[in-house]
Amino acid sequence: MATRPESLDPATVPTWEEVADNYGRFIYSLSYRLVGNHHDAQDLTQEVLLRVRRGLVNYKPGNFEGWLSRITTNAFLDRVRKQQRRPTVSMPEEAERFLVGSPGIEAEMEAADLPDDLQRLLADLPPDYRAPVVLKDVLGYSYEEIADHLEIPLGTVRSRIHRGRSRLKEALSV
C-alpha cells in the first residue's frame, strides 16, 4: 500500500489545489498501476484531476482517498470502454519472455526485474479484473469498499479478484 497518501483532515473539503498538491502522486501511481505505462498514466491523471475539480462541489467530507480511488478507477474503465469501441492493436506477450519454469513465484520474481515485470503481467489482465485487483492488493481496500467503488455486487468483486490473481499465478507458473 505504498501509494496511499497521508490523509488530510477528513472533516474538511480540500481545495482543488490541495488535491493536486497532496494527492497528485497518489493519483498518478494508481493511474500507472491501472494503465501500465507513463503516457497513459499522465492522460488518466489529467482526466482524474478534471473530474475532481468538477466533483469537489458535491463532495461530502469522508474517505477522501476512497473518493479519489473511485474516480480514478471509473475514469480508467471509461477509457477502456471508449478504446474498445475503436480498433486496437495487440500488444506483445511480454510475460513469456522471462517466465520460464522455475520453482516458485518468489524465486521467479527475484530472478526478474520484479516491479516492471509484475506490472506487465498486471497490465495483461482484462481491465475488469485489473481494477479490483489493484484496489484490493495494491491499495488494500476491502471487498466491500471495492464493491462500493465499482458499483458491482460483492460476489462479482470476489470472483474477479480471484480470477485476476489466478491469471497472474498462471502467468508466473508458465
Binding site: R25, L114, L118, D137
Partner: peptide
C-alpha cells in the same frame, strides 16, 4: 502470495 507481491509494488513517481 500474489496479494503480497502486488502490495509490495512501489509508488510510481510521475515524470
Amino acid at each position: 502470495e500474489i496479494a503480497s507481491l502486488l502490495g509490495a509494488l512501489p509508488t510510481v513517481e510521475p515524470p
